[in-house]
Design a protein around this nucleic acid. Structure first.
Lengths: 235, 235
DNA sequence: CTGTTGCCTTGATCTGAAACAAGGACCCGG
DNA sequence: CCGGGTCCTTGTTTCAGATCAAGGCAACAG
């Protein structure tokens, strides 16, 4: 039977742990440690020794790549149940920072690698997730390199809406949908490889075209999902 | 003892197969089939069912992502010993095409997935390689989104020189090094998210600055590796 | 109530790279 | 030797998005 730390875990069915039987969960729990971080706190620093990995329990994290002179690019976002960290790497290549308050279930990297050896189903699930993350990263390379500002913003809105929807409603992105952006304009710019000003202008343009309504800085209503998709594909 | 197909395999020590003992190699060989492709031939089509995976034996392949209206971005290059394909995916997300004549050692996807289950060391090696590919893809996201044309070209030259060097000489990228570019200007542009013209102009600029010498379309001499690195980091 | 701070919008200007256009070098087949 | 590819370079023009600059607005502390 799973130990106490896990019984009320909100991501028990979705995180890597879902690959384990009760016995496995008990063994894994012995290696894990819960950790809470506050918004803005950095969990892993690029260049530091890769000592821990983690399953994200709640909150949102960003992974940031940076040039020597300080230009930054968000190269990954992590949501609850996602796996974070770089097993088999000696040091972290990127910095991981909390966008919101967050809760992590951390494991030491070495013991985790060893644990994988003995739990093939978890290793396999990690492989499948890594392959999916790789596919997603490649898709984003296309987007960063070849889409216009308008396409990028529209695409990101669709992604975020889908993710927000999945939490509250069944899928199907049609007819007015209202949700809160999980990030600031600045973070959107960092994800899309643009500047804050350009993101803001594109949102204003979308509003002017009657595709969106904006209220406050964070709340968005998609008034015309069809038009938004067209915008994402062609503008 | 490995079967005939493998005894003279040039990547036997570097491909996924290196994780197998002789027994494993024999079993794996039973699933494999050699296939030769000519430059320009497409090996996997985006949208097609994912039916095969492969180890690249010789040659170079590109993986291309494309928008609906035809804009393209190379999201990965494959060199000998690299693993190509999308296990656990129902269909290919990207198109893979040979840049040069190439030789592949192909496996049916399903039997391969099944084989992995029974050969944990190969699965683990694939996991490690996938993690490394993911890290590389993320690094390229930074480059695509935030570097200038000059930085991108200089960086790619350094990468290609390092890869060429590794084949002929010991590492150490100092003092004049001459090598052949493994791709056209057009491919460089597709990798870097730019146009042919801009690539060409940057090379001309590098030549003018005395950092490079160009002879013919493909042959490059790095005359000042230090300056080239500076160019990659700052221009 | 007021000053501060963080986040967002909007306007004006600038600029790097794309787009467009023309021509050169090389290769190959006939 | 010629004609037609393919690939590369170079010049000119154009434009999307960056940069610079100025406020607006809400939340919050004092």
């Amino acid at each position: 039977m799973p130990t106490e730390i896990c019984v009320d875990c909100p991501v028990r069915e979705h995180a890597l742990c879902s690959s384990l039987n009760d016995e496995g969960v008990i063994a894994f729990t012995g290696l894990c440690q819960r950790r809470c971080v506050t918004a803005g706190e950095t969990v892993m620093w690029a260049g530091d020794e890769s000592r821990i990995c983690a399953n994200l329990v709640s909150g949102v994290l960003k992974m940031v790549a940076a040039t020597a002179d300080g230009r930054e690019q968000i190269v990954g976002l992590f949501y609850p149940a996602d796996f974070v960290g770089e097993p088999y790497a000696e040091e972290h290549a990127f910095t991981v920072t909390a966008l919101t308050n967050a809760e992590l279930c951390t494991v030491q990297r070495r013991p985790f690698e060893h644990f994988l050896e003995e739990h093939a189903r978890m290793e396999n699930l990690l492989l499948q997730r890594t392959l999916r993350a790789l596919k997603e990263a490649r898709g984003r390379m296309l987007s960063l390199a070849r889409l216009s500002a308008g396409e990028k913003v529209a695409g990101l809105l669709i992604d975020m809406a889908a993710r927000a929807e999945r939490c509250v409603r069944r899928p199907g992105l049609d007819h007015p949908v209202t949700f809160d952006l999980p990030m600031t304009r600045g973070h959107m710019a960092d994800v899309l490889g643009m500047t804050i000003e350009t993101v803001s202008r594109q949102l204003t343009k979308l509003k002017g075209a009657g595709v969106l309504a904006l209220s406050g800085n964070r709340t968005v209503t998609i008034k015309d999902a069809h038009a938004l998709r067209a915008w994402a594909a062609a503008r």
